[in-house]
């Protein structure tokens, strides 16, 4: 089973994404900020990351930069934000995101993207 890490400080958003992903048989772990996300990644890297931008301690950009700097097999990351400005997307890409989505992400759309990035055939 593919493992996905949700890095978001809002428990509600984490639960929302978790429910979507678990219903599609993915294994989900959560981190409340970038630091926690890195800790979990170092213990065992994930197959995909869903990353919020605005978080305490280490924000989403910081998390991605650190993640991409790690000497680990790199996995795709989706940055999920509420800011609808394209400049944010560019910042996200530069930091190491592979996709930039705007909250709230429709479940089916999220699953399509996640499956594509993980190389799974969409049902």
């Amino acid at each position: 089973m593919k493992r996905i890490l949700i890095v978001d400080d809002a428990a509600t958003v984490r639960l929302y994404h978790r429910e979507i992903l678990e219903a599609a048989n993915f294994t989900v772990e959560e981190a409340m900020n970038g630091i926690e996300g890195l800790e979990k990644t170092l213990r065992s890297p994930f197959d995909l990351y869903l990353v919020d931008i605005n978080m305490p301690k280490l924000d989403g950009y910081g998390f991605l930069r650190e993640l991409r700097g790690l000497d680990l097999p790199q996995a795709p990351a989706i940055m999920i934000s509420t800011e609808a400005e394209a400049s944010d997307a560019r910042l996200a890409y530069a930091a190491g995101a592979n996709l930039y989505l705007i909250k709230p992400v429709r479940p089916n759309q999220l699953l399509i993207q996640v499956r594509l990035l993980l190389g799974e055939v969409c049902p």
Partner: peptide, 28 residues
Amino acid sequence: GLKANIPVQPAMPVTPTDTQPAPAPATQ
């Protein structure tokens, strides 16, 4: 590329358990 930045379709949550398609059977 532009479209990727734009949630062209409104992104709308639903009760996941109600609507999730069956898990991908054809996982490689």
